[in-house]
Design a protein around this nucleic acid. Structure first.
Lengths: 233, 233
DNA sequence: TAGTGGTCTAGACCACCGG
DNA sequence: CGGTGGTCTAGACCACTAT
């Protein structure tokens, strides 16, 4: 009478989402048990479970054993961000990619790097500074520190042709990642490297990665004016 | 002999992840069929499926019907971002939250707003400018446009006590979201409002939301110097 | 068209945690 | 302790797409 085909977990998800949009379930309200929803809709409990997992992933509801499922009282704006390899990013914009190593040398990790990794004390690390170019013009300046204990291979790499960005992403999978975004004013050196006016506002993307608590690398990707980071949604 | 308890999908995920880390499966390589992995590990295929779903969500592998599962050739750095309501953000930092409406009026949507929504032509919208304070000092300046057709309730709200940020997040769930981040230099008005030096570099978080292609709101959250956006990971 | 992942089901047991 | 979500299984069928 009503529907001929089975309910998919997306259907179930959308129905519940609809109820939340409509206000049938408001912030903080408790939803029926999965089993009850399943019975009401005429599907298996695991289908409801799959739908709820999705709603939970998107931050719309919170689930607890015994506590049940509740609409999140303090909603958050949740989004997924994809940061591609810089070379790919440039090429996909239709421009010609270029790369230029600025400096490569061992040095004791400064305080900021020690803090980013959560280490107790400083230690010697490999610092690699490089410039990514788009159609020959500066695109991103990369100031990177690599932990040689975790990646001994870097001692044999000079990073004159291939960027550390690319080598690490391809060869050093991580198990933990910290990302942060902020803005800085171009100091004289940066405005020189990036060919911008002194004091220009630059978006900085800072990434730190670990393998099982062993620090791999931390990098500040300092972008050129006008650069925008978008969600993939 | 080997193991007494069942494999969980996390175990399966970690094993495969390990194989990718080790290089047993390199970028672009094809992994065995789910069914074969299940048999090899002695678990149900759906357990492998659950593990693979997770690896796929984190951008480590790509799955296609008939094409099988492959290690992503061009890896991306993928992260999930949670942006809380500004009031909560301030309060959780231990500071006292304050709010101040700067201006509220109807106006024709400028080109940038029309473009953000993907509309064909301009139309009158409600513009709300407001300041969020942390311990009495400027924290974030919010420049927002609201589409009154989608949210007619805003005609009866003056936003002098409650911020549009909070009202919208609590009362206007969205089905689509666009996020972008970039840096701007403080112009005279911004440096005045935010009590910063003229030309200071500021991180801007731009959010646009829709319900089923109907535009709800677009907002530029212009932060104060030093503000950092972090991943929840 | 055939191979592979995607989903649904029904049932069972487990893990967590609120009352 | 008991209620609820989390997971695993075995099997079936479907949907997509590479070959």
């Amino acid at each position: 009478m009503t529907s001929d085909s089975r309910l998919s977990w997306r259907d179930v998800r959308d129905r519940i989402h609809e109820h939340i949009l409509t206000g049938r379930y408001g912030p903080g309200d408790r939803l029926p048990r999965d089993a009850d929803i399943a019975e009401e809709l005429g599907c298996a409990r695991s289908t409801v479970q799959r739908a709820m997992q999705d709603l939970s992933d998107s931050g719309l509801v919170e689930r607890r054993r015994k506590g049940g499922t509740r609409v999140r009282a303090e909603p958050v704006t949740r989004a997924t961000l994809d940061i591609p390899i810089t070379r790919r990013e440039v090429e996909q914009s239709g421009a010609r990619y270029g790369y230029q190593l600025i400096r490569r040398r061992m040095a004791p990790a400064p305080r900021g790097v020690v803090a980013a990794f959560g280490l107790g004390a400083s230690r010697p690390m490999l610092r690699v500074e490089a410039l990514h170019l788009s159609d020959g013009r500066p695109y991103i300046f990369e100031d990177r520190w690599i932990c040689p204990e975790t990646s001994p291979e870097v001692n044999d790499l000079d990073f004159t042709e291939e960027s550390a960005n690319e080598w690490l992403v391809l060869n050093k999978p991580y198990t933990r990642l910290d990302l942060r975004f902020y803005a800085v004013s171009a100091n004289p050196r940066l405005s020189d490297l990036l060919e911008t006016e002194p004091g220009a506002a630059l978006l900085v993307i800072e990434r730190t990665t670990w393998v099982d608590d062993a620090p791999i690398t931390t990098v500040k990707a300092i972008t050129t004016p006008g650069y925008q980071l978008l969600t993939g949604s």
